[in-house]
Design a binder for these strands. Structure first.
Length: 577
RNA sequence: GUCCCCGUAGCUCAGCAGGAUAGAGCACCGGAUUCCUAAUCCGGGGGCCGUGGGUUCGAAUCCCGCCGGGGACACCA
């Protein structure tokens, strides 16, 4: 099991090896000139460079050796030394069949037996979630699904900001209002938090009280702990509404507070080992190296006033995760602007052997800013930060309007229509976010992303639903999709079959580079290739029974693959619309 | 000041493990429906790949400089 290109790589690689060349040079990939050939291998040119020989001569030898290979319909030299290949339809059909028979559609479980922890979402207690949390949530959740599909034990941790100065500020504000000990609602918190923060900024007295409250909380004062726990519960309930609406899942609801107990012993150990030192009144882990080209400030564990920083909790959290899960990797899906911070934390984790390099990969999968159409960070019309729930509501409203315009979902009852609108909205939001290169900033345009035409989430849902409808119609007409399909490849089927065979290649790229956008592009290509196929042949009225069965099987496989890929992006497909 | 990211069609973006004629979507122009969801499909126009050098048989891709945009740079997260 593998992609078609991988199978061809084995064949061509063996031919390279037989000529005494490196098998790696036999890398075959889908041709970027589909008008010339289906697949290409550029290894002869690289081999020629190394051996200082004529590339066409080397290519000629290989082509001769592979001339009669049963998998190949055609193999020839082109240009300066490209090797162009086409597979036989029989080989293609057999390959498609092996994918259809595979639970994973040909993807190999490279992560089996290994664990990966993903850190995304990152909401803050007492603050409503806003658009800044959208990208982290969407990208992180998709990566979690991708890792899980690759066989990893993929653990998503929401890693809430539930500790430190802001908590003390809220507690002291509650105390000042005589509300300490009384339950608060999320709406109240949304007002209390900024008020508390403002008060501490303006009034040194209040700031001092907040610091004292922070210390009391962290020392375990029962009244403070109880009040804190109450507004944490309220906040989490609010977060869950947002995450549920988006279909973003977490396995762990941990926060910064969960590592509080680890911090003091950790710092003591590091000090004893001489890895943490005092500097300018603070306790830091120096992480600069001699060969650094840039300034690399140390990671601060204790501030001058003795309080911990987010670097401290992040380092302790690495230790916690390593201890609890022995992960092969920890992935942080956090704003690109924090790249220096993570470099400091990662270096500290290496230098202290909390996470040795040969044991655990530490990766910051950063992402760019979500901008408005003016290219500046996305804001509401009034210029404020848009709440996530408002944004979702806006998308749902837009989706409803689009469905109505298109006269889709018209014969459904209200509940199903609402469900479809919601799925369309989430598909629009997620696809628009994920289809961009992660690290680049992207322009948020609600009108564009909710359209049913073009490269959008709704278009992909439409295509998938259309295939499902066709399959249902076939069933209704007594034309069953064979359980054990045999594929017949004719001219009209070939492009779709070849496209289906690419899935493992795109999946591997998405996994290795943590780039869901690769899957977005591929899903779109697949949908388009299906549409061309669908336009080129009328399936249900095909009189050749074998061909009709094959085409129905091709439809079924495309549907399954499309639903699977969208699922990896966190997008659900409605049964109809 | 140092460092990081970005700069590709009018707009939004792929391509950056060096390869053939740089691709999509939107918008624009022209076609296609007695039939499975036409919100679709087929075709067309549109590009000094920011810029100047270098490496290479070959550069959007690698290296150096410059310009433009964004960001970060010990006690906030």
């Amino acid at each position: 099991m593998a992609s078609l290109a991988q199978k061809l790589t084995e064949i061509v690689g063996a031919a390279f090896a037989a000529e005494g060349l490196s098998a790696e040079l036999g890398l075959v990939r889908v041709s970027d000139r589909p008008d010339l050939c289906q697949f290409q291998c550029n290894g002869a040119m690289a081999a020629a460079k190394a051996a200082k020989k004529n590339p066409r001569e080397i290519a000629q030898t290989l082509v001769q050796a592979l001339q009669d290979h049963p998998a190949l319909a055609r193999i020839e030299i082109a240009g300066p030394g490209f090797i162009n290949l086409d597979v036989t339809d029989a080989f293609l059909a057999a390959h498609i069949k092996s994918n259809a028979d595979s639970d994973t559609l040909g993807v190999e479980p490279v992560g089996a037996g290994r664990t990966i922890v993903l850190d995304y979402g990152g909401p803050n207690i007492a603050k409503p979630m806003h658009v800044g949390h959208l990208r982290s949530s969407i990208i992180g959740d998709s990566l979690r699904r991708i890792c899980a599909f690759a066989g990893y034990r993929a653990i998503g941790d929401v890693h809430m900001g539930d500790w430190g100065t802001p908590m003390g500020q809220i507690l002291s504000e509650l105390e000042a209002r005589g509300r300490l000990g009384q339950p608060v609602t999320m709406d109240e918190l949304e007002e209390i938090y900024p008020a508390a923060s403002r008060a501490c900024k303006e009034d040194e007295n209040r700031a001092e009280q907040a610091r004292a409250a922070t210390v009391k909380l962290q020392d375990g004062d029962p009244v403070y702990r109880a009040a804190w726990q109450q507004f944490i519960d309220v906040s989490i309930a609010g977060m869950k509404e947002n995450f549920d609406a988006l279909g973003v899942h977490f396995d762990l609801w941990k926060g910064e507070s969960d590592v509080h107990e680890r911090i003091a012993p950790m710092v003591e150990t590091l000090k004893t080992a001489g890895l943490a030192v005092e500097s300018e009144g603070a306790v830091v882990v120096p992480v600069a190296r001699e060969d650094d080209k840039k300034e690399m400030p140390p990671l601060i564990l204790y501030k001058r006033d003795g309080a911990v920083m987010y670097g401290t909790t992040d380092l302790a959290t690495v230790a916690d995760r390593v201890e609890a899960f022995s992960p092969a990797a920890i992935l942080y899906v956090v704003d690109q602007r924090q790249s220096l911070h993570f470099e400091q934390v990662f270096r500290a984790a290496r230098v202290t052997a909390i996470a040795p390099e040969e044991q655990v990969e530490l990766t910051h999968a950063g992402f760019g800013t979500m901008n408005g159409q003016d290219g500046k960070p996305f804001k509401t019309r009034a210029g404020g930060v848009m709440k996530l729930q408002d944004l979702i509501a806006m998308a749902v409203e837009k989706a409803q309007a689009r469905l109505e315009e298109a006269d889709l979902a018209a014969d459904m009852d209200q509940a199903e229509r609402d469900d479809v609108a919601h799925k369309v909205a989430v598909a629009a939001l997620k696809f628009a976010d994920l289809h961009n290169n992660r690290v680049a900033d992207y322009v948020f345009d609600i009108d564009r992303m909710t359209r049913f035409e073009g490269k959008t989430g709704p278009y992909l849902l439409y295509q998938a639903v259309r295939i499902n409808s066709l399959l249902n119609k076939a069933k209704g007409a007594g034309l069953d999709v064979p359980e054990n399909p045999t594929f017949a490849i004719k001219a009209e089927d070939r492009a779709l079959a070849l496209a289906l065979a690419e899935f493992p290649d795109h999946f591997r790229l998405a996994l290795e580079n943590y780039t869901p956008h690769v899957l977005c592009d591929y899903a779109y290509k697949l949908a388009q290739d299906f549409s061309s196929f669908y336009g080129a042949c009328h399936i249900l009225s095909e009189e050749d029974e074998q061909l009709r069965a094959s085409r129905l099987s091709l439809c079924a496989l495309t549907y399954r693959q499309l639903v699977l890929i969208l699922g990896l992006l966190g997008i659900q497909v409605p049964a109809r619309m």
